[in-house]
Design a protein around this nucleic acid. Structure first.
Lengths: 226, 226
DNA sequence: CGCACGTGTGAAGAAGTCGTCAACGCGCCA
DNA sequence: TGGCGCGTTGACGACTTCTTCACACGTGCG
């Protein structure tokens, strides 16, 4: 769930935002001052911050700087001031977007979605590594390691293995494998599966004739067991 | 230098933006229609796009979708319409920001800086210099050193090498290489890759016929292994 | 026991992909 | 205008991958 930190000293705005955001499935935390905002951001690690500039204690730009000192979380600034100087300084301090009050909730939500989308498509460096006793599959790098050495797979071999690993523990029907790897018109070429599962076992299983990870479910399909 | 693509059909706006942006050291290209915008974006690879929604040919949202099909370049939308529905649909189509006309140049420039900053600090966790036994790639300086001397690469050679090095260890699909280096319409010109990989190997690998760093995965793509 | 069925295995030809060399065309600059 | 650098194309041999085939295996059932 996406976590939003709302920072504003006006209770009615906090309330309105909380209700709207919660209704759309966001996990909302709030802060009423700059000090509190910095503290809550540090403990909660929100995915996006909505920050009002007119806070009672610290200047808004200082809050932005305080956050930017250690995080690159998207910051959307709210402000009653339409003065372009304010916008420029907030954006240059590290804010991602600037919305002037009074604002439309639709627009704010759209800008929030845009900010979250940007931030989430960025760190594509997800760990997509699945290990077994015999070998390791790296889905992102499209690599298989066995006994410290990389095992070379052909495109079709990789297609079959990837589908099984992505559904690890689950039975994958023969028809599904054939359709997703070879295409919709190959749904009944079950022989291909036998050939390619044999090849994968030969390359990956310690004892290909007694597979421990690439298992057959007779008449139904195959299963990858980590 | 940061490259900006300005898309607008009103010459006076294009002119004003070009002057202001050029004065601040941006490299400006322009397009007066949606078709032209997509074509120029594919050839120029701008670092940020400023897009007017009221274009004569294609609907603005279609232009955003067309760009988002192959690139995540920041898009700042300009529009005369203050209607929140327009803002929401543009942002949800993949725009990064939305500025209503008439706009202050200061504010637009600040939003542009914010968009570029976000996009460039994205690959922050990466080391800009990558070394192999045979050569050294400096991503920031766009330089390659081999045996103490700089190796000259053509723009296309560099484009291919950079993408591979940024994804070091990972398999990069042929389609991705072609789309990001040559443009979205070259997705199936696999022959180019063979020619350019051969050239890179000739320049960088100690034994071009037995590459150790620029590896081929037949039928899938290429991989840079440090 | 013998048969049917789905499965595993190895090998061989067909099909597709890759590396390489060389030529062409275009824009740029002297 | 001529030369140069660069991107694009074509041809062809070498190599990899896909497809197909023949046959062995094992389990369940009549």
């Amino acid at each position: 769930m996406t976590k939003v930190l709302v920072v504003d000293d006006e209770p009615q705005i906090v309330r309105a935002l909380r209700i709207n955001l919660a209704a759309r499935g966001y996990d909302v935390s709030t802060a009423a001052s700059g000090q509190e905002a910095l503290r809550v951001a540090a403990t909660e690690h929100p995915d996006v911050v909505v920050l009002d500039l007119g806070l009672p204690d610290i200047d808004g730009a200082k809050v932005i700087e305080g956050l930017r000192g250690w995080t690159s979380v998207p910051i959307i600034v709210l402000s009653a001031r339409t003065d372009s100087g304010d916008k420029v300084s907030a954006l240059d301090a590290g804010a991602d977007d600037y919305v002037t009050k009074p604002f439309g909730m639709d627009e704010l939500l759209a800008r929030l979605r845009a900010a979250v989308r940007r931030a989430s498509t960025v760190p594509a460096g997800e760990e997509a590594v699945v290990e077994t006793q015999a070998f390791t599959v790296d889905l992102a790098a499209k690599k298989v390691i066995r006994d410290g050495a990389e095992v070379h797979l052909t495109p079709t071999e990789w297609g079959v293995l990837e589908l099984l690993v992505r559904n690890r523990g689950k039975l994958v029907a023969q028809k599904q494998l054939l359709q997703e790897v070879w295409g919709p018109s190959y749904a009944s070429e079950t022989h291909y599966l036998r050939v390619y599962l044999a090849q994968l076992r030969r390359k990956l299983e310690p004892r290909p004739s007694r597979p421990r990870h690439l298992l057959t479910e007779a008449g139904m399909g195959y299963r990858f067991e980590p």
